[in-house]
Simulated assay, not measured.
Amino acid sequence: MARVVVIGATGHIGTYLVPRLVRLGHNVVAVTRGTSKPYLPDPAWSQVESIALDRDALERQGSFGSTIANLQGDVVIDNICFTLDSARQLVEALKGNVQHFLHIGTIWTHGLSEVVPTPEDVTKRPFGEYGIEKAAIEAYLLDLARRENFPATIIHPGHIVGEGWAPLNPAGNGDLAVFETIARGERLELPNIGMETVHHIHADDIAVLLIQAMTNWRAATGEAFHAVSPGAVTLRHYASSIFRYFGHEPNLAFAPWEEWKSRQTEENANATWDHISRSPNCSIEKGRRLLGYAPRYSSLAAVEESLAWLVANGRLRT
């Protein structure tokens, strides 16, 4: 079994990943800022070595990479790297000191969906700081893997869902009021004709894919994989399904983008545009073929589990 260092261990992915690693017999080092707890309790956390580090401060000092390398992990999983400079500092310190490095990217590295379902190896044209930086990290890691045999694997999640936090809603933003409108059976207005897509993934399915990549090391190194559900959903279908989940027939209206935008907060409109302008619809065939990836949750099943948790914990008014 391996010594696995998980950076960002108590977040969306780590909440599910760390207990799975412990139950498989791995020695897990959980690196966090020291202020957060996993979203769900699990007795496996009592067997984890926890270390609090301020990544931003250590990176400014130029010592974050060496600090992680000194933990002597066989495997390092980085859930929270967002810039190329940050990735370089860590990876340069890990060269020759790690058996496998796994980086969490994003399906936003693709930019606009041009071919659907979108495979990992199409030409990428990202836009927006987040997608551009993540695409640069991916290119850097894959180049190192091919030129210097650095054992890197990139996992690109879709919109992460799971118990403990709110899923991306059918309007393409994070406002819980959208789900509350649906739960009451009231009319929900969507932009355009609701045919843009979103592509969710349950955090536990990401955890499973990471472990499959570790297990199938030779097939996984030097490769990038999508971590998404078996199928994207249109906003229209997503909203209709959630109406039915709450016991109502769909009650939808539609408006042209500029008109719809005028009735939203700036924050919600910007978030919706970020999602529908990309309209992701990603393929998981490569993960199936090389790693045996078979996500347990559909997009809607993952969302429904999250909604049930939100209702049970008083976070969603129905």
Rank of each mutant, 00 (worst) to 15 (best):
E133A: 11
I160T: 13
I137D: 12
L141E: 09
R146G: 04
Y140A: 02
D121Y: 00
R147H: 00
G158P: 04
V115W: 00
V161E: 04
R147T: 04
A166M: 08
D121M: 00
R146N: 08
H159I: 03
G158Q: 04
T153Y: 04
V161G: 01
A166Y: 07
K124N: 11
D143Q: 15
L142T: 06
K124L: 15
V122I: 15
D143P: 09
Y140P: 02
W165E: 04
I137Q: 13
K134W: 06
E114S: 01
G131Q: 01
S113H: 10
L142C: 05
A152T: 03
E133G: 04
P117M: 07
Y140M: 01
P167E: 09
E120Y: 12
V115R: 00
T123L: 13
I160C: 12
I154V: 14
P126R: 13
T118S: 05
E138A: 03
G128Q: 00
A152L: 02
G128A: 03
P157H: 10
P157G: 09
F127L: 06
A136N: 13
A152C: 03
E138W: 00
V116I: 14
V116G: 05
T123V: 14
I137Y: 11
T118M: 05
T123Q: 14
G158K: 05
T123E: 15
L142P: 08
E138L: 07
P126H: 12
A135F: 01
A135G: 02
E163H: 09
P151I: 07
R125P: 07
A152V: 02
K134N: 06
A139R: 14
E163V: 10
P119K: 06
Y130S: 10
P151R: 06
P119R: 07
H156T: 04
A152G: 03
I132S: 12
L142I: 09
G158M: 04
E133P: 09
I155S: 03
E120W: 12
P117Q: 07
P119S: 09
T118I: 00
K134R: 11
L168I: 08
D143R: 13
H156R: 14
D121W: 05
I160V: 15
E148Q: 09
T118H: 01
Y130W: 11
V115L: 05
E133H: 11
K134T: 02
W165M: 06
T153L: 06
A135I: 03
A136F: 08
G164D: 11
E133I: 07
Y130R: 08
V122A: 11
Y140L: 04
V115E: 03
E129G: 09
Y140C: 02
L141A: 08
E163A: 13
L168P: 05
E148Y: 05
G158T: 01
I155H: 02
K124T: 13
A136I: 06
P117L: 06
W165Y: 12
G128S: 00
R125G: 12
A139E: 15
L168E: 05
P151C: 08
A135W: 02
S113A: 15
G164Y: 10
D143T: 15
A139N: 15
Y130H: 12
A136C: 10
L144F: 08
F127I: 05
P167W: 07
G131E: 01
G164L: 12
E120S: 13
D121G: 01
P119N: 10
A166W: 03
A136V: 09
P117N: 10
S113F: 09
I132Q: 15
L141C: 06
E129C: 08
